[in-house]
Design a binder for these strands. Structure first.
Lengths: 111, 111
DNA sequence: AGGCTTTATCGACTATCGTCGATTGACGAT
DNA sequence: ATCGTCAATCGACGATAGTCGATAAAGCCT
């Protein structure tokens, strides 16, 4: 049990931060909301077309989002199908969680 | 009403991102959780002592957190009293909000 | 096999961010 | 008035992150 006054352990703070970092970029927000609106998986090319940024940039952001399991990938032929991970959307920590010291949800777990 | 397929407008995405940016740093997370545990206002010096980073750094982070109204400031003599803003903690957007295109809560509003 | 398409990766450039130390500015106490 | 304390600001530095263009890798289709 945590005392009332000791700071949140650094390691835990960094886990939390890594969650928020994933959504701390406007382009990533656009991509995520795009994938969520279309509930069906999208190919990278489709995301590129819809988001207006370069292909390598989109690929990079999708990789970041996939690392937090925020989106899921599935290769199909030469294409990569990305879709939103509803479970991770739900378990994404809220500010209240941080503030109340709720244990950080582990990314792989919430799948 | 937003169609099902058009990307989230850039401006809105950036507003969202600015919320998440505020919690996208481990030190800031520690400071926030510190202020929340002590429900009473804390002076900058106290935060410095408890967080182990330099005074100017703490001041900087507190400024950032205050800009999103995540913490509230009140000067008292030479000291600055920072306390958590419960209202903004509650209205902090969740990942689900982003995904479903819920309108971004305006920082000043949620006070 | 050869070419085409799709995506991932690499390298480079820039901008932003976190941190520090030093300085400045306010305020209170003596 | 001066000194001491507290917090904010400034300047600098290193590190990280976003973007792009070009290249490479993998798979399909004739």
């Amino acid at each position: 049990m945590n005392g009332d006054s000791d700071p949140l352990p650094r390691a835990e703070a960094e886990e939390y931060a890594s969650w928020f970092k994933a959504l701390a970029d406007a382009t990533r927000i656009q991509i995520v909301s795009l994938l969520a609106r279309r509930r069906a998986p999208m190919t990278v090319g489709e995301v590129v077309a819809a988001s207006g940024v370069g292909q390598s940039t989109v690929s990079h952001h999708l990789k970041i989002l996939a690392e937090v399991r925020f989106v899921l990938v599935e290769r199909q032929g030469t294409a990569s199908l990305y879709r939103i991970n509803e479970a991770c959307v739900r378990c994404f920590p809220t500010a209240a969680d941080v503030v109340m010291g709720k244990p950080v949800p582990a990314a792989p777990t919430c799948e």
